[in-house]
Write a protein that binds this DNA or RNA. Structure first.
Length: 568
DNA sequence: GCCGTTTTCGGCCCGACTGTTTTCAGTCG
């Protein structure tokens, strides 16, 4: 799948250069679309190419197919190389600066010789940028703001960090509107957010806008109109957009602002084919409004069932909705227990009794206590003796609580030689075993993980890629190979809900789903306050099209299809 | 550059906000 990524990157760059040069915008869009389609492909583009099926891929026509063919057979694309030579290396990067678009940048390059960020700042400083036709003080100011945002460049942040910010803002605007909802990528539960989109219903848009732009944590109001405003939140440097509509347009606006762009482009194309027009105010047949108040009505107007936001990525959901039907996605109520929990027997904050009581209040049927094994010393890993004492403590707490089963689990380290951190005899005494790599990320991680899966006592692999959203790359392994091996061995893979992990993520979940593997959705809990974070893992699972039948901890304990209950 | 259940040519999602404009282009989502 490495080639998919490379080709998508190349097409995206071609689009950037063509746009900069002022080429036909629809040609530019064709390249962007092809890039998006290729990066979302669930199959290796090499295989599609070898089967001669390139042109059957949506958005790939004669010209794109030729370029893909050229790349896969020669390792380069002539047209791409030519384009890259026309434009200085650092220039495209400047397109990421907000308020500085391709038109302005190209003029700055052509007329003022701006080739990189330093040049750009220099022509702002010496006033030459202002000499460009149509450029004024305000525009310069906005570009300067864009540059400072770009430099502080936090980029995208985890959904786990963005959602609490959203909740606060929604609470804040609540009194000034009839209804307030999150939209955009956060509603789709995408793993990271680049900005926050909020939709409000009000007959007095100005009151809501006024309140919003006065929000105490806004360090800047970057736009303020009659129905729409944007602020920048201080700490996270996140842009927050508010859109206010009347209640007759709520569904259409929610559909529109939830996106994704690719999903909406296709939805609107469908509408056009039916002689309808969709915008954020409603679905129109000529002048007549035929839907708009509820999102369900918008989809129904196109002959489609309502599509859950997590699926709206143009990954086949529209076709599924139109024909074979959408998958029945796992819901929070389906989750019967959390089975990756750390107690104070390793690095967790709470004692087992406290955790059990908190889980009982959530209505869980069971919890799985999974402390660290002895080699994870920093995480308070337990030696065999301590593990024994922990198990006795679980027995004691079990006697005190009814209606909740406390399972004896372990998060056992996969050592540098692929051996597990305890003997089989110890692992056999436990209800289930989760294995994980915590050190030696670059030392044969894939081979070690597969060796761990060779042990029939290993039921689950935790955080299978090891990546962190805050920047750590993860283990050096081929995740597709791991997924295929897990399928072969009946090992389940974890969907870890920790805000910085979200591992597996949606695309890897989709690959696992295609192989028919099982998953667990867990919190990797270190404190009872973290129970709620399971919503993030559920979001990832839903984005990966999973139903409750795919999730081990959506089964009752007696029915859970754990690997050790198979005869393999 | 892609695409077709009115089209193989002529469309391509659609609209808000801003700034610099006397009617609209650029940028964004």
């Amino acid at each position: 799948m490495e080639k998919n990524k490379e080709l998508a990157g190349i097409f995206e760059k071609i689009a950037d250069i063509l746009e900069l040069k002022g080429e036909n915008i629809f040609k530019v869009k064709a390249y962007r679309r092809a890039a998006a389609v290729i990066s979302e492909l669930s199959r290796d583009i090499n295989a599609i190419w070898q089967n001669g099926e390139l042109k059957q891929v949506e958005g790939i026509g004669k010209s794109m197919a030729e370029k893909i063919d050229e790349y896969l057979s020669t390792g380069r694309i002539g047209k791409y190389c030519e384009l890259m030579e026309e434009i200085p290396g650092g220039l495209l990067e400047l397109l990421k600066i907000q308020n500085l678009g391709p038109k302005t940048l190209f003029i700055a390059y052509n007329q003022l010789g701006v080739k990189n960020l330093n040049d750009l700042e220099a022509v702002i400083e010496n006033g030459r940028l202002e000499s460009i036709f149509g450029m004024g003080d305000k525009k310069i100011e906005n570009i300067k703001t864009g540059i400072s945002l770009y430099k502080s460049g936090k980029g995208r942040i985890s959904i786990g960090l963005a959602l609490p910010v959203v909740d606060k803002i929604i609470d804040f605007i609540g009194p000034y509107a009839d209804k307030v909802s999150v939209a955009g990528s956060l509603r789709r539960m995408k793993e990271t957010a680049g900005d926050i989109d909020i939709l409000a219903v009000s007959s007095e848009a100005d009151r809501a806008i006024e309140a919003f732009t006065g929000y105490s944590e806004a360090k800047e109001v970057s736009a303020k109109g009659e129905t729409k405003a944007s602020i920048i939140i201080s700490e996270e440097n996140l842009q927050v957009d508010l859109r206010v509509v009347g209640k007759e347009s709520y569904g259409a606006a929610l559909q529109y602002f939830t996106g994704s762009t690719a999903h909406n482009v296709k939805i609107r194309g469908l509408a056009r084919n039916k002689g309808l027009k969709i915008n954020e105010y409603g679905v129109f047949q000529g002048e007549k409004v035929i839907a708009g108040a509820a999102e369900e009505d918008v989809y129904r107007a196109l002959g489609l069932p309502w599509i859950p936001p997590e699926l709206r990525e143009d990954r086949g959901e529209i076709e599924a909705a139109a024909h074979e039907g959408l998958p029945l996605l796992v819901k929070r109520e389906d989750i019967k227990g959390d089975i990756h929990i750390h107690s104070n027997y390793s690095d967790g904050k709470n004692d087992i009794g406290t955790i059990a009581i908190a889980a009982g209040k959530l209505g869980y049927e069971y919890i799985g206590v999974c402390d660290h094994s002895k080699t994870s010393r920093i995480a308070g890993g337990m030696d065999e003796e301590k593990l024994k004492r922990r198990n006795e403590e679980i027995d004691r707490q079990q006697e005190k609580i009814t209606g909740l089963k406390i399972l004896k689990g372990i998060e056992v380290d996969i050592l540098s030689d692929g051996q597990l951190d305890y003997s089989d005899a110890i692992l056999e005494e436990l209800d289930f075993v989760i294995a994980a790599i915590h050190q030696g990320f670059s030392k044969n991680a894939g081979i070690r993980m597969k060796k761990a899966m060779d042990n029939p006592l290993v039921d689950i692999i935790a955080h299978p890629t090891g990546r962190l959203l805050s920047g750590r790359k993860g283990y050096e392994l081929d995740i597709e190979e791991i997924i295929a091996y897990a399928a072969e061995k009946n090992v389940a893979l974890e969907i870890n809900s920790h805000f910085d992990r979200l591992d597996l993520n949606d695309t890897n979940i989709l690959k696992g789903r295609a192989k028919g593997i099982k998953f667990i959705i867990s919190t990797d809990l270190h404190s009872t306050e973290m129970f709620d974070s399971i919503k993030l893992g559920i979001g990832m699972a839903r984005r990966g099209w999973l139903g409750k039948e795919d999730i081990l901890n959506a089964y009752s304990w007696n029915e859970m299809p754990l690997r050790r209950r198979y005869h393999d």
